[in-house]
Amino acid sequence: MTEFFQSLGMTYEWAWFVATISGILIIVLPLLLSVAMIVYADRKIWAAINLRRGPNVVGPFGLLQSFADGLKVFLQETIIPSAANKGLFLIAPIITFTVALAAWAVIPFSETAVLSNINVGLLYILAISSLGVYGVVISGWASNSKYPFFSSMRAAAQMISYEVSIGFTLITVVLMAGTFNLSDIIMAQKGHIGGIVNAYGLNPLLFPMAVVFLISAMAETARHPFDLTEAESELVAGYQTEYSSMSFALFWLGEYANILLMCALNAILFWGGWLPPIDWAPLYAVPGIIWLLLKIFVFFFIFSWVMATVPRYRYDQLMRLGWKIFLPLSLAWVVIVSGYVMIRDNGWPL
């Protein structure tokens, strides 16, 4: 894109600056729009599984429901509790929202469409997603109220626990692909099993890790059935209890942007990203971004499906799953996959 702006007569520096800013806008604006639509899709899927109608009043089929909700929230009064730590109370939703958007900088949307193609892309995503916990923890502490505080304690422990297994799961993919760059990871999946499928997830060696990653992603985004941070029967609304108006909306947008990010990561790391599912020439006629969006939506559907079917975990069960099942399993899998890669690259040692 820099070349395009250079052709308009700008110097390289200005062209780079304008190209980066417009790149950010090209990603963020559709992302926010899709967050609004995905909330609608979430409610519709949930309603359909419960044999309800879901939102159907605002606009055709209720399509504009999220925008109506957004407008309502926008017009509300921002209430700051008198005993709250004012500065941190207002910073917390901003952190959640910013962090949720920042991670999208390295997501490759097609072969060429990636804002920042850095060679530590996966580490960047890990770094950014580990920041997500601060918005929750700070909001819980700054609210100076007991339910948000309990919620932020739960969130901190939960996110740290599941980041460990997510980290090991990612290591298996990195070992397989031999790179931390997300575009290269996608290209390494091309024609994976006997030149047929473009997905690591269908490799029997990596399929268990794909499942572990999907479940850990649900826990990491505090999504059902792991939404103990906002368990309404115990904690009112968790860390969001004292928030209103736009500060509440920022939490809400950030949460769904994070969920979309996790779905995108699932698609990129295990199911071939913008590659078509099968390595067959006519399928490449469809633009890569369509495949990526389709895959993201399939994973989002799984998230909604789980939300509508599975009851909430108990906290000790959550910790047990993270530390006693996923951690040893993924750790063992790192050893197995490194052994496989060793044999694949260097031949059988005996």
């Binding site: 530590v120 580490l123 960047y124 770094a127 580990s130 923890v137 980041e163």
Partner: peptide, 16 residues
């Protein structure tokens, strides 16, 4: 990236 992952993502969360 390691600095952010290890110190900000894990150590500082435990401090906090």
């Amino acid at each position: 990236m390691l600095l952010v992952i290890v110190y900000v993502g894990a150590v500082a969360v435990l401090f906090l």
